[in-house]
């Protein structure tokens, strides 16, 4: 499951998780809408290993700036709050899954 979060939960949950993937997106961005179900599927595939979150860049501009998100959709992978890797743009499910696994 991918949980939509705001700044508060980002700090208290996403940054505290052993491994987290945060999907930075915007409601008006076509590729973001297409990537959402793909990320959802990967989150099911990796249940129990990685926590998945979704952040709307219009609602959280400071977070987007802090993580240097300059183009959406942008997936950010973190381990215990530390930035690990970034994946920009739409990618098919196998590519997203292998990106997550290679950074675990």
């Amino acid at each position: 499951m991918v949980r939509k979060i705001g700044e508060q939960e980002f700090l208290s949950e996403a940054k505290a998780a052993d491994a987290a993937v945060v999907d930075f997106n915007a409601t008006w961005c076509g590729p973001c809408r297409m990537l959402a179900p793909v990320v959802e599927a990967v989150s099911e595939e990796m249940k129990g290993q990685v926590s998945f979150y979704s952040v709307d860049v219009d609602e959280c501009p400071e977070l987007a700036a802090e993580y240097r998100v300059q183009s959406v959709p942008c997936l950010v992978m973190m381990k215990k709050g530390e930035f690990v890797s970034q994946s920009i743009g739409f990618k098919p499910q196998p590519a997203i899954a292998s990106w997550v696994k290679s950074n675990l």
Partner: peptide, 16 residues
């Protein structure tokens, strides 16, 4: 520089 200053979608990345 794609995703780091270069974008192909004005509608997507305008808010940034």
């Amino acid at each position: 520089a794609l995703g780091h200053g270069v974008s192909y979608c004005a509608t997507c990345d305008a808010s940034l």
